[in-house]
Write a protein that binds this DNA or RNA. Structure first.
Length: 259
DNA sequence: ATGGTGGCAGAGCCA
């Protein structure tokens, strides 16, 4: 038996964060990494640097905004970045691939700006359409991992000050219902299989020294299907890269699976 | 209620 270490990281510009990424790959040695907010056109993807680090890569990027990628020791197969019904090719937010017998779906969920904004309505609609896509992925690939920047706090334990935050964006009941409709397909928040306490976050605002004060949110998730649940061995949030100079506002989250 | 910080791109948008 061997272990597959799977990670998700919103890097907030792969161009700027490439040194952090390669350092973290060398330190953490993940087998699969899902990236979000690469903010790179595909022609500018740093394939050579990542190959030198020992990783294959598939990606769906665009200039300035969004962009997702999957890095893997093994060759990713059956790559999908166009989702039926999600007719918005301008926003590169989804990438699916099969790695080592596990189906991996990388999501960069719409932020939504604020409750009631047209971007918020778009977010809820996007979540419903992604749910339909995931239902089909799960039917075809029972060994499924859905991970990424969900831009939703699953519950109040995932918010540094749930009273102050209230039902604002990332915590509104409709967003949480959208996430629950996805997990109700038979997907489990792997972090909560191992840790029940509040105060474990994956994102901290750049402003107001939020990281130093641990004023964060847990919005980066690794969901696993029923078929993989018994193989989960550990889940963690690696705060180390958030402490480096000129960091992403997100830090990597990880899951170890017995394979 | 606003603005604070960062990335991209070169002013304002997005987060």
């Amino acid at each position: 038996m061997s272990t597959m270490k799977i990670a998700s990281w919103n890097v907030n510009s792969l161009k700027v964060r490439l040194p952090h990424l390669t350092q973290w790959l060398a330190d953490a040695k993940p087998d699969v990494v899902a990236l979000q907010e690469t903010k790179l056109e595909d022609a500018k993807f740093p394939l050579d640097e990542l190959a030198a680090a020992g990783y294959h890569a598939v990606y769906a990027g665009q200039k300035t905004y969004n962009g997702v990628a999957i890095l893997a020791r093994d060759l990713p197969q059956d790559v999908v970045s166009e989702v039926p019904g999600l007719d918005d090719p301008q926003q590169r937010r989804i990438l699916a691939a099969t790695v080592g017998g596990v189906r991996v779906v990388d999501l960069y969920v719409v932020n939504g700006k604020e409750v009631g904004d047209e971007k918020y309505t778009y977010k809820l609609d996007w979540l419903a359409k992604v749910r339909a896509f995931l239902a089909e992925e799960l039917r075809r690939h029972p060994r499924l991992v859905v991970l990424g920047d969900f831009n939703i706090c699953p519950d109040d334990r995932d918010v540094y000050d749930p009273v102050a935050w209230g039902e604002a964006i990332l915590c509104s009941p409709a967003e949480r219902a959208g996430l629950q409709a996805i997990t109700a397909l038979g997907l489990h928040d792997s972090f909560r299989l191992f840790e029940q306490a509040a105060g474990h976050f994956s994102w901290w605002d750049y402003r107001q020294a939020a990281f130093r004060r641990n004023m964060g949110l847990r919005i980066d998730l690794i969901l696993i299907s029923d078929a993989l649940k018994s193989q989960a061995r550990a889940a963690a949030i690696d705060r180390t890269p958030r402490q480096w100079e000129r960091p992403s506002d997100h830090t990597p989250v990880t899951l170890e699976l017995d394979i």
